[in-house]
Design a protein around this nucleic acid. Structure first.
Lengths: 176, 176
DNA sequence: GCAGATAAGTCAACATGACTGTCCCAATTT
DNA sequence: AAATTGGGACAGTCATGTTGACTTATCTGC
């Protein structure tokens, strides 16, 4: 964590970042397009920060996503990770093989169901994930700080609204 | 446009989508991770809707991005599009060749600078882009409507905060 | 007017990360 | 005992990105 865990950090910016506010006619095409574009540029800006670290390790974004979710939910099964990432078993297989051979991820046999392989990070895997997380966090914490607490709540609400209702429980479940 | 241009549309949902609000300690790791995850799932949920249309045309997401920005800024140059997409000339070249051969995009010689190739959509290109936009819009309009006008302003503020300040003018410039 | 810079296009080779289809094994469920 | 499920593997393909080098046309500064 590069950000102190204190309320004063949240108050570092007394005046939130000014953006043109949404108008009462906020479903007009212009305002829809503004959301599409900001979502595209915001998303790509955030993840770009981790790319240099990944490239130095010979890894890609697919590896990062797996590391991230294994860090977030230690002991999740291969099937759960496939479901979160929305990719096929074959696609994930190669990524997990890479991460296993580099000793960044370990598998244990499931306790309740011995067919399952439960995924955890090794010490070096956790260290790498922490470095990658710090990059994302730097970007996100700056954005949160500039926009302010109330804006963050709105940010979450719109993003959750983009997720099809059927998929929302899975996203909510990531919150501990 | 599938959404009526009227103030009543914005009031269709009287009670905004409830999400756990950001806490005063909104720079804690948990709340940063929540933003990272919602951004990932929200972004992928939004663009997934257009994939079926693209696949039926034998096109991919790279083609969609080009069509989108050419629709947004008709007459932009190849170099401007490269800058917006953040890819190389070679990568874009293949996409523009595809779109040209299918007669979805046209090039005109620049007026001020005859080295430039200014890009516009053909009638069929505009029709396809409109269908793709409608898919994104359906998702975004639902999210806006569920979250409410004030949330949308916060959504924009955080996303703009994610964009490095040096890149912000380019994003702002897309707004007409 | 000429030299150098710039906008765009192209060729070749390559990496990543997704896909499909098929087959297999072990463990669980019915 | 049979069917289903979780996971792994092989083979092939496709989309989309990369670097490097080269060409052509055009613009700009001296």
């Amino acid at each position: 964590m590069t950000v102190p865990i204190s309320a004063t950090a949240a108050q570092a910016h007394v005046s939130p970042l000014k953006v043109t506010p949404a108008s009462p006619l906020f479903l007009r095409e212009d305002e829809i397009r503004r959301g599409i574009e900001l979502l595209y540029f915001g998303y790509t800006s955030m993840i770009r920060g981790a790319d240099a670290i990944l490239e130095a390790q010979g890894l890609g974004r697919a590896h990062h996503r797996s590391l991230y979710f294994i860090a977030r939910r230690p002991g999740l099964s291969v099937g759960e990770l496939i479901s979160l990432l929305g990719i096929t078993k074959q696609s994930l297989g190669r990524v997990l093989n890479d991460l296993g051979h580099r000793e960044l991820v370990e598998q244990r046999v499931g306790v309740a169901d011995r067919r399952q392989r439960l995924l955890t990070l090794t010490a070096s895997g956790a260290a790498l994930e922490a470095r990658l997380f710090t990059e994302l966090e730097r970007s996100m914490a700056r954005a949160y700080g500039e926009a302010g607490q109330q804006a963050v709540t709105g940010f979450w609400a719109v993003l959750m609204g983009l997720v099809p209702p059927a998929d929302r429980p899975q996203v909510e479940a990531l919150q501990s």
